[in-house]
Amino acid sequence: MRSRILVTTKSRELRANSTDAETKLWNALRNRQIAGFKFVRQEPIGRYICDFVCREKTLVIEADGGQHLESERYKVRDRYLREQGYRVLRFWNNDVLSNIEGVAMVIEAALGKSG
Results as ranks from 00 to 15, higher is better:
N27K: 13
N27G: 14
A28E: 01
L29N: 05
L29I: 07
L29W: 01
R30A: 14
N31P: 11
N31T: 02
N31L: 13
R32W: 03
Q33D: 12
Q33Y: 03
I34A: 12
A35R: 00
A35Y: 09
A35K: 09
G36Q: 04
F37A: 04
F37N: 08
F39Y: 05
F39R: 03
V40I: 06
V40P: 00
Q42P: 02
Q42F: 13
E43D: 04
P44E: 04
P44A: 07
P44I: 00
I45D: 13
I45H: 11
G46D: 10
R47S: 09
R47M: 13
R47E: 07
I49S: 03
C50K: 14
C50M: 05
C50P: 11
D51K: 07
D51A: 05
D51H: 00
D51W: 01
F52N: 06
F52H: 03
C54W: 01
C54F: 00
C54S: 01
R55P: 01
R55G: 03
R55W: 00
E56M: 12
T58E: 13
I61V: 15
E62Y: 02
E62L: 08
A63M: 02
A63W: 02
D64L: 04
D64R: 04
G65H: 01
G65M: 06
G66F: 03
Q67A: 10
Q67S: 04
Q67G: 00
E70I: 04
S71C: 11
S71L: 08
S71P: 06
E72T: 00
R73G: 13
R73Y: 07
Y74H: 10
Y74Q: 13
K75T: 00
V76F: 08
V76L: 14
V76C: 03
R77C: 15
R79I: 06
R79S: 15
Y80F: 14
Y80P: 05
Y80E: 05
L81C: 05
R82Q: 13
E83A: 09
Q84C: 04
G85L: 04
G85V: 07
G85M: 06
Y86K: 06
R87H: 02
R90I: 06
W92F: 05
N93G: 09
N93T: 03
N94G: 13
D95Q: 13
L97T: 06
S98A: 12
S98I: 08
S98K: 11
N99T: 08
I100Y: 07
I100M: 02
E101K: 10
E101F: 03
V103E: 02
V103S: 08
V103I: 10
A104D: 03
A104N: 05
A104C: 01
M105C: 14
M105G: 11
V106R: 13
V106F: 01
I107N: 12
E108Q: 15
E108N: 15
A109S: 06
A109F: 07
A110Q: 07
L111K: 07
L111F: 07
L111Q: 12
G112H: 01
